[in-house]
Deep mutational scan, measured.
Amino acid sequence: MTEYKLVVVGAGGVGKSALTIQLIQNHFVDEYDPTIEDSYRKQVVIDGETCLLDILDTAGQEEYSAMRDQYMRTGEGFLCVFAINNTKSFEDIHHYREQIKRVKDSEDVPMVLVGNKCDLPSRTVDTKQAQDLARSYGIPFIETSAKTRQGVDDAFYTLVREIRKHKEKMSKDGKKKKKKSKTKCVIM
């Protein structure tokens, strides 16, 4: 069974824990209790493949930012979460993405942009803004509501699919490099 290491990042209060708990335990946590770091595991079937999701729910508070490099190193894919009623959390996505790329030393890291709290009427981040940002990053965008469960499975499952595509691409690139290195030079 394939294991996928997913990391949920975003500013404090955007609903990272609520999304994760909704996926794992099928219930909505409405009281806000700032996370330092929590880890969850769940076995699911995605596109006919049974897999184990190892999900790291991270601290959004700035005082825990020193811990970010460590979990970013171990993560295979990242859910970059903002709240649709919090423009600052949307603007912060850029910083999370840049930090992930720096730590992973790669421009090509599996990510999904997630606009959470889409059940709320007080939207300050337009869907088109988020779609445009995701398009500019070359990553999928999904709106979710941890409260109603809308888009929750889709967000995590899409990230797994992005990781699969990335692994497939990397193995193809690896095979191309191996083929090239088999060419021999004969000096007579």
Score class of each variant (00 low, 15 high):
75 G>I: 13
28 F>N: 06
164 R>F: 04
133 L>T: 04
163 I>H: 07
93 I>C: 02
98 E>G: 02
144 T>N: 08
2 T>A: 10
13 G>V: 05
68 R>L: 05
159 L>C: 04
133 L>N: 01
160 V>K: 03
50 T>Y: 03
97 R>A: 15
76 E>L: 15
96 Y>G: 01
59 A>Y: 05
29 V>E: 12
73 R>K: 10
82 F>G: 15
180 K>N: 14
115 G>C: 09
80 C>N: 01
69 D>L: 01
72 M>V: 07
173 D>F: 02
95 H>W: 13
18 A>F: 04
155 A>I: 14
56 L>C: 14
49 E>P: 03
3 E>V: 08
104 K>P: 01
77 G>D: 00
69 D>E: 07
35 T>E: 04
132 D>H: 06
138 G>T: 02
91 E>I: 02
131 Q>G: 05
16 K>R: 11
14 V>F: 02
167 K>M: 02
77 G>V: 11
100 I>S: 00
158 T>F: 03
3 E>S: 13
124 T>G: 12
63 E>C: 04
23 L>P: 13
159 L>M: 03
170 M>H: 11
75 G>L: 04
97 R>H: 06
58 T>Q: 09
36 I>W: 06
55 I>D: 09
62 E>R: 07
6 L>P: 02
33 D>T: 08
46 I>D: 05
170 M>W: 03
7 V>L: 03
145 S>W: 09
25 Q>E: 07
138 G>V: 02
182 K>D: 15
157 Y>Q: 15
176 K>E: 13
123 R>H: 13
102 R>Y: 02
161 R>Q: 12
136 S>E: 11
70 Q>I: 06
12 G>T: 06
170 M>Q: 09
39 S>D: 10
182 K>R: 12
90 F>Y: 08
9 V>H: 01
166 H>Q: 08
19 L>K: 06
184 K>N: 15
53 L>W: 06
115 G>P: 03
70 Q>V: 02
155 A>G: 03
33 D>V: 10
187 I>Y: 13
145 S>D: 14
99 Q>E: 13
7 V>M: 06
103 V>S: 06
67 M>C: 09
54 D>I: 04
106 S>E: 10
19 L>M: 10
41 R>E: 10
16 K>P: 00
128 K>E: 13
161 R>S: 05
43 Q>F: 02
31 E>G: 11
113 L>W: 04
65 S>W: 06
137 Y>L: 14
145 S>M: 03
159 L>D: 00
178 K>A: 14
8 V>S: 01
74 T>V: 06
98 E>C: 01
151 G>N: 10
82 F>Q: 01
37 E>H: 02
109 V>A: 03
55 I>H: 06
142 I>K: 07
53 L>E: 04
69 D>C: 01
25 Q>T: 04
111 M>C: 03
90 F>V: 12
71 Y>P: 10
38 D>W: 03
154 D>Y: 09
77 G>R: 00
115 G>Q: 04
180 K>V: 04
89 S>H: 08
165 K>G: 04
90 F>D: 01
131 Q>K: 11
144 T>Y: 02
66 A>S: 12
158 T>K: 04
75 G>F: 09
61 Q>I: 07
65 S>C: 10
88 K>A: 09
72 M>K: 05
161 R>N: 05
84 I>A: 15
118 C>P: 02
5 K>P: 03
107 E>Q: 10
187 I>C: 14
169 K>T: 06
179 K>W: 06
183 T>Y: 01
39 S>W: 05
28 F>E: 11
148 T>C: 09
51 C>K: 06
134 A>C: 06
143 E>G: 02
14 V>A: 08
163 I>S: 01
142 I>C: 05
4 Y>A: 06
86 N>C: 02
91 E>D: 13
150 Q>F: 13
26 N>R: 06
112 V>R: 00
135 R>A: 15
92 D>G: 05
82 F>K: 00
169 K>M: 12
89 S>T: 02
62 E>D: 12
96 Y>K: 03
128 K>G: 13
178 K>W: 08
166 H>E: 05
76 E>N: 08
77 G>A: 11
10 G>L: 00
27 H>Q: 11
45 V>N: 06
97 R>E: 08
96 Y>E: 01
139 I>V: 11
99 Q>A: 04
173 D>M: 11
7 V>Q: 05
120 L>F: 09
65 S>I: 05
145 S>A: 02
160 V>L: 05
